[in-house]
Simulated scan of single mutants.
Amino acid sequence: MKKNISNYIKSLALFTVLFGTCLNGYSQDQKQEFSVSVGGPFSFVKSTSSGDFLPANGFNAGLRYAYYLNENISLSLGAEYQVYTGQSKFTTLGGQYSATDAESESFQFRYSAVNFREKQNLSYINVPIAIQFETQGSTRFFIAAGAKVGFALKSTYESSAENLTTSGYYPQYNVELFNPAFAGFASTNDFKSGKQDFDTKVSYSATFETGIKQAVGDKSAVYLGVYVDYGLNNVFDKTGDKNLIQYNPDLPVQLKHNSVYDSGLARDMRLVSFGLKLRFAMH
Protein backbone atom coordinates (compact mmCIF):
# COMPACT_ATOMS: atom_id res chain seq x y z
CA MET A 1 0.00 0.00 0.00
CA LYS A 2 2.70 2.52 0.99
CA LYS A 3 4.76 1.67 -2.11
CA ASN A 4 1.72 2.21 -4.36
CA ILE A 5 0.97 5.55 -2.70
CA SER A 6 4.61 6.63 -3.06
CA ASN A 7 4.57 5.77 -6.76
CA TYR A 8 1.29 7.59 -7.20
CA ILE A 9 2.61 10.75 -5.51
CA LYS A 10 5.70 10.71 -7.74
CA SER A 11 3.50 10.34 -10.82
CA LEU A 12 1.25 13.13 -9.58
CA ALA A 13 4.22 15.46 -9.05
CA LEU A 14 5.55 14.69 -12.55
CA PHE A 15 2.12 15.23 -14.05
CA THR A 16 1.77 18.57 -12.24
CA VAL A 17 5.12 19.79 -13.58
CA LEU A 18 4.35 18.69 -17.14
CA PHE A 19 0.85 20.13 -16.90
CA GLY A 20 2.20 23.50 -15.78
CA THR A 21 4.92 23.47 -18.48
CA CYS A 22 2.41 22.73 -21.22
CA LEU A 23 0.09 25.47 -20.05
CA ASN A 24 2.96 27.95 -19.96
CA GLY A 25 3.83 27.04 -23.53
CA TYR A 26 0.20 27.50 -24.54
CA SER A 27 -0.09 31.03 -23.15
CA GLN A 28 2.46 33.10 -21.29
CA ASP A 29 -0.30 35.48 -20.18
CA GLN A 30 -2.11 32.93 -18.03
CA LYS A 31 -1.42 32.92 -14.31
CA GLN A 32 -0.34 30.04 -12.11
CA GLU A 33 -0.78 29.81 -8.36
CA PHE A 34 0.85 27.58 -5.77
CA SER A 35 -0.65 27.38 -2.27
CA VAL A 36 -0.36 25.63 1.08
CA SER A 37 -3.34 25.10 3.36
CA VAL A 38 -4.55 23.83 6.73
CA GLY A 39 -8.14 22.99 7.61
CA GLY A 40 -10.45 21.60 10.29
CA PRO A 41 -11.54 20.99 12.98
CA PHE A 42 -14.33 18.55 12.03
CA SER A 43 -13.06 15.45 10.26
CA PHE A 44 -14.66 12.16 11.14
CA VAL A 45 -15.79 8.65 10.25
CA LYS A 46 -19.54 8.61 9.57
CA SER A 47 -21.45 5.33 9.76
CA THR A 48 -24.76 3.58 10.36
CA SER A 49 -24.69 1.87 13.75
CA SER A 50 -26.98 0.05 16.18
CA GLY A 51 -25.32 2.15 18.88
CA ASP A 52 -24.59 5.87 19.09
CA PHE A 53 -22.34 7.53 16.55
CA LEU A 54 -20.14 10.27 18.02
CA PRO A 55 -18.40 12.67 15.55
CA ALA A 56 -14.85 13.63 16.45
CA ASN A 57 -12.18 16.10 15.33
CA GLY A 58 -9.38 15.88 12.78
CA PHE A 59 -7.36 18.12 10.47
CA ASN A 60 -5.87 18.41 6.99
CA ALA A 61 -2.80 20.06 5.45
CA GLY A 62 -1.99 20.25 1.77
CA LEU A 63 -0.38 21.68 -1.34
CA ARG A 64 -2.20 22.91 -4.44
CA TYR A 65 -1.34 24.02 -7.96
CA ALA A 66 -3.87 26.17 -9.87
CA TYR A 67 -3.93 27.28 -13.49
CA TYR A 68 -6.06 30.32 -14.43
CA LEU A 69 -8.11 30.00 -17.61
CA ASN A 70 -8.84 33.71 -17.23
CA GLU A 71 -8.78 36.26 -14.41
CA ASN A 72 -11.81 34.69 -12.69
CA ILE A 73 -11.71 30.94 -13.34
CA SER A 74 -9.00 28.44 -12.43
CA LEU A 75 -8.44 24.69 -12.39
CA SER A 76 -6.49 23.12 -9.53
CA LEU A 77 -4.79 19.86 -8.60
CA GLY A 78 -3.21 19.04 -5.25
CA ALA A 79 -2.36 16.62 -2.47
CA GLU A 80 -3.53 16.71 1.16
CA TYR A 81 -2.77 14.80 4.33
CA GLN A 82 -6.03 14.18 6.20
CA VAL A 83 -6.77 12.63 9.59
CA TYR A 84 -10.27 11.30 10.31
CA THR A 85 -11.46 10.13 13.75
CA GLY A 86 -14.68 8.57 14.96
CA GLN A 87 -16.32 6.84 17.88
CA SER A 88 -19.08 4.23 18.23
CA LYS A 89 -20.80 3.89 21.62
CA PHE A 90 -23.05 1.13 22.99
CA THR A 91 -24.68 1.34 26.44
CA THR A 92 -24.83 -2.46 26.58
CA LEU A 93 -24.04 -5.21 24.12
CA GLY A 94 -23.41 -8.93 24.16
CA GLY A 95 -23.18 -12.08 22.12
CA GLN A 96 -22.69 -15.83 22.19
CA TYR A 97 -21.48 -18.53 19.81
CA SER A 98 -20.19 -22.11 19.76
CA ALA A 99 -16.48 -22.67 20.44
CA THR A 100 -14.03 -25.39 21.49
CA ASP A 101 -11.65 -25.05 24.45
CA ALA A 102 -8.04 -26.24 24.84
CA GLU A 103 -9.22 -29.71 25.90
CA SER A 104 -11.40 -30.03 22.76
CA GLU A 105 -14.58 -29.59 24.82
CA SER A 106 -17.44 -27.88 22.99
CA PHE A 107 -19.09 -24.99 24.79
CA GLN A 108 -20.90 -21.72 24.22
CA PHE A 109 -18.70 -18.65 24.58
CA ARG A 110 -20.60 -15.66 25.96
CA TYR A 111 -19.66 -12.02 26.40
CA SER A 112 -21.34 -8.82 27.60
CA ALA A 113 -20.09 -5.24 27.88
CA VAL A 114 -21.29 -2.10 29.65
CA ASN A 115 -20.61 1.33 28.10
CA PHE A 116 -18.61 -0.13 25.25
CA ARG A 117 -16.76 2.34 22.99
CA GLU A 118 -14.63 2.00 19.92
CA LYS A 119 -12.46 4.81 18.59
CA GLN A 120 -11.28 4.86 14.98
CA ASN A 121 -8.35 6.85 13.62
CA LEU A 122 -7.70 6.99 9.86
CA SER A 123 -4.89 8.76 7.97
CA TYR A 124 -5.35 9.43 4.24
CA ILE A 125 -3.59 11.13 1.35
CA ASN A 126 -6.29 12.94 -0.64
CA VAL A 127 -5.87 14.19 -4.21
CA PRO A 128 -8.30 17.07 -4.90
CA ILE A 129 -9.28 18.28 -8.38
CA ALA A 130 -11.41 21.43 -8.47
CA ILE A 131 -12.63 24.40 -10.47
CA GLN A 132 -12.70 27.82 -8.81
CA PHE A 133 -14.48 31.07 -9.60
CA GLU A 134 -13.43 34.36 -8.00
CA THR A 135 -14.42 37.98 -8.37
CA GLN A 136 -12.00 40.79 -9.23
CA GLY A 137 -10.16 43.24 -6.97
CA SER A 138 -7.68 43.03 -4.11
CA THR A 139 -10.37 41.47 -1.90
CA ARG A 140 -12.18 38.71 -3.76
CA PHE A 141 -15.06 36.35 -3.08
CA PHE A 142 -14.32 32.81 -4.28
CA ILE A 143 -16.22 29.57 -4.65
CA ALA A 144 -14.70 26.18 -5.60
CA ALA A 145 -16.12 22.71 -6.19
CA GLY A 146 -14.71 19.37 -7.29
CA ALA A 147 -13.80 15.87 -6.20
CA LYS A 148 -11.17 14.09 -4.12
CA VAL A 149 -9.65 10.63 -4.31
CA GLY A 150 -8.22 9.39 -1.00
CA PHE A 151 -5.61 6.67 -0.37
CA ALA A 152 -5.33 5.09 3.09
CA LEU A 153 -1.99 5.40 4.89
CA LYS A 154 -2.97 3.87 8.24
CA SER A 155 -6.25 2.87 9.91
CA THR A 156 -6.54 1.81 13.57
CA TYR A 157 -9.24 1.18 16.17
CA GLU A 158 -9.22 0.88 19.95
CA SER A 159 -11.94 -0.63 22.18
CA SER A 160 -12.83 0.13 25.79
CA ALA A 161 -15.64 -0.69 28.23
CA GLU A 162 -16.67 0.14 31.76
CA ASN A 163 -16.99 -3.60 32.30
CA LEU A 164 -16.42 -6.63 30.06
CA THR A 165 -17.59 -10.05 31.22
CA THR A 166 -16.77 -13.29 29.37
CA SER A 167 -17.95 -16.77 30.30
CA GLY A 168 -18.32 -20.31 28.97
CA TYR A 169 -21.53 -22.33 29.12
CA TYR A 170 -21.10 -26.11 28.89
CA PRO A 171 -24.55 -27.59 28.08
CA GLN A 172 -23.29 -31.16 28.58
CA TYR A 173 -22.71 -30.29 32.26
CA ASN A 174 -25.33 -27.53 32.50
CA VAL A 175 -22.76 -25.18 34.02
CA GLU A 176 -21.57 -21.65 33.13
CA LEU A 177 -17.98 -20.76 34.06
CA PHE A 178 -17.00 -17.17 34.84
CA ASN A 179 -13.38 -18.09 35.63
CA PRO A 180 -10.48 -18.87 35.42
CA ALA A 181 -9.11 -15.87 33.56
CA PHE A 182 -6.38 -17.91 31.84
CA ALA A 183 -9.19 -19.88 30.13
CA GLY A 184 -10.71 -16.64 28.81
CA PHE A 185 -13.48 -16.32 31.41
CA ALA A 186 -13.37 -13.17 33.58
CA SER A 187 -15.05 -9.92 34.58
CA THR A 188 -12.84 -6.92 33.79
CA ASN A 189 -13.48 -3.32 34.85
CA ASP A 190 -12.07 -0.41 32.82
CA PHE A 191 -11.29 -2.72 29.93
CA LYS A 192 -9.05 -1.46 27.07
CA SER A 193 -7.99 -3.48 24.04
CA GLY A 194 -5.10 -1.34 22.79
CA LYS A 195 -4.74 -0.08 19.21
CA GLN A 196 -5.23 -2.52 16.35
CA ASP A 197 -4.95 -2.13 12.58
CA PHE A 198 -7.73 -2.64 10.06
CA ASP A 199 -7.94 -2.18 6.28
CA THR A 200 -9.86 0.64 4.61
CA LYS A 201 -10.27 1.26 0.90
CA VAL A 202 -9.89 4.17 -1.53
CA SER A 203 -12.25 7.04 -0.71
CA TYR A 204 -14.11 9.18 -3.25
CA SER A 205 -15.45 12.51 -2.01
CA ALA A 206 -17.25 15.59 -3.28
CA THR A 207 -15.65 18.85 -2.13
CA PHE A 208 -16.89 22.43 -1.83
CA GLU A 209 -15.14 25.56 -0.55
CA THR A 210 -16.07 29.26 -0.39
CA GLY A 211 -14.77 32.41 1.29
CA ILE A 212 -12.57 35.47 0.85
CA LYS A 213 -9.26 35.84 -0.99
CA GLN A 214 -7.18 38.81 0.14
CA ALA A 215 -4.22 40.01 -1.92
CA VAL A 216 -0.99 40.53 0.05
CA GLY A 217 1.42 42.44 -2.17
CA ASP A 218 1.69 41.78 -5.90
CA LYS A 219 2.45 38.07 -5.89
CA SER A 220 0.75 36.53 -2.85
CA ALA A 221 -2.67 36.18 -1.28
CA VAL A 222 -4.40 34.70 1.75
CA TYR A 223 -7.57 32.61 1.49
CA LEU A 224 -9.97 32.24 4.42
CA GLY A 225 -13.08 30.18 3.90
CA VAL A 226 -15.31 27.30 4.87
CA TYR A 227 -15.22 23.88 3.24
CA VAL A 228 -17.09 20.58 3.12
CA ASP A 229 -15.77 17.19 1.94
CA TYR A 230 -18.36 14.39 1.87
CA GLY A 231 -17.47 10.75 1.23
CA LEU A 232 -19.41 9.16 -1.63
CA ASN A 233 -18.48 5.52 -0.98
CA ASN A 234 -18.15 2.97 1.81
CA VAL A 235 -14.44 2.55 2.59
CA PHE A 236 -14.98 -0.61 4.67
CA ASP A 237 -17.23 -2.91 2.64
CA LYS A 238 -16.43 -6.28 4.21
CA THR A 239 -19.18 -8.74 5.19
CA GLY A 240 -19.14 -7.94 8.92
CA ASP A 241 -19.47 -11.61 9.89
CA LYS A 242 -16.76 -11.76 12.57
CA ASN A 243 -17.43 -11.99 16.31
CA LEU A 244 -16.77 -8.77 18.21
CA ILE A 245 -14.78 -10.80 20.77
CA GLN A 246 -13.13 -13.86 19.27
CA TYR A 247 -12.28 -16.82 21.52
CA ASN A 248 -8.88 -18.48 21.10
CA PRO A 249 -8.41 -21.97 22.67
CA ASP A 250 -4.64 -21.69 23.12
CA LEU A 251 -3.69 -21.39 26.82
CA PRO A 252 -3.41 -18.86 28.26
CA VAL A 253 -6.34 -17.58 26.20
CA GLN A 254 -5.70 -14.32 24.36
CA LEU A 255 -9.05 -13.01 23.18
CA LYS A 256 -9.10 -11.12 19.89
CA HIS A 257 -11.12 -7.91 19.84
CA ASN A 258 -12.47 -7.20 16.36
CA SER A 259 -13.85 -3.86 15.18
CA VAL A 260 -17.56 -3.04 15.33
CA TYR A 261 -17.30 -2.83 11.53
CA ASP A 262 -15.92 -6.39 11.35
CA SER A 263 -18.86 -7.61 13.44
CA GLY A 264 -21.58 -5.69 11.58
CA LEU A 265 -22.54 -3.55 14.59
CA ALA A 266 -21.53 -0.55 12.45
CA ARG A 267 -21.50 -0.32 8.64
CA ASP A 268 -21.35 2.05 5.67
CA MET A 269 -18.15 3.86 6.71
CA ARG A 270 -17.84 7.22 4.95
CA LEU A 271 -15.28 9.97 5.44
CA VAL A 272 -16.53 13.49 6.17
CA SER A 273 -14.64 16.71 6.84
CA PHE A 274 -15.78 20.32 7.21
CA GLY A 275 -14.84 23.54 8.94
CA LEU A 276 -12.49 26.44 8.25
CA LYS A 277 -9.62 26.42 5.76
CA LEU A 278 -6.68 28.84 5.62
CA ARG A 279 -4.54 29.00 2.47
CA PHE A 280 -1.44 31.01 1.65
CA ALA A 281 -0.91 31.40 -2.10
CA MET A 282 1.90 32.68 -4.35
CA HIS A 283 1.78 33.35 -8.09
Rank of each mutant, 00 (worst) to 15 (best):
I212A: 09
F34L: 14
S263N: 00
A102R: 00
A99Y: 08
S37T: 13
S193L: 07
L63T: 12
I212F: 08
Y26H: 09
Y111R: 10
D52W: 06
S106R: 06
V45A: 12
T165M: 06
T85S: 02
G20P: 04
L251E: 02
N115D: 09
T156F: 03
G40I: 13
T210W: 03
E103A: 09
Q132C: 07
K256F: 11
N24A: 09
P252Q: 03
P252R: 09
V222F: 03
D190P: 07
E118S: 07
K195C: 06
G194L: 03
N7C: 13
S47G: 01
L224N: 06
I9Q: 15
S11G: 15
I5K: 04
T135H: 02
A56V: 02
I143N: 06
L224W: 02
E118V: 08
K201A: 10
Q120E: 15
L122P: 00
L54R: 13
V235F: 00
K213G: 02
A186P: 03
I143L: 15
S112D: 13
R64A: 10
V38P: 05
E33V: 12
N243G: 01
F15P: 04
K46I: 02
S43N: 04
K46C: 00
N4I: 15
F59K: 10
Y169P: 06
G40S: 01
G95K: 11
V175T: 11
Y227N: 10
K46S: 11
L77A: 15
T85G: 00
P128S: 08
R110K: 15
D241Q: 06
G217K: 01
F208M: 04
T239F: 04
P41A: 08
V36K: 03
T188S: 13
S6G: 15
Y124A: 12
Q87F: 04
S49V: 11
Y169N: 11
D241T: 10
V149N: 11
T210R: 10
G194I: 05
S112E: 13
L177A: 01
A186N: 14
T156K: 10
G78H: 13
L244D: 00
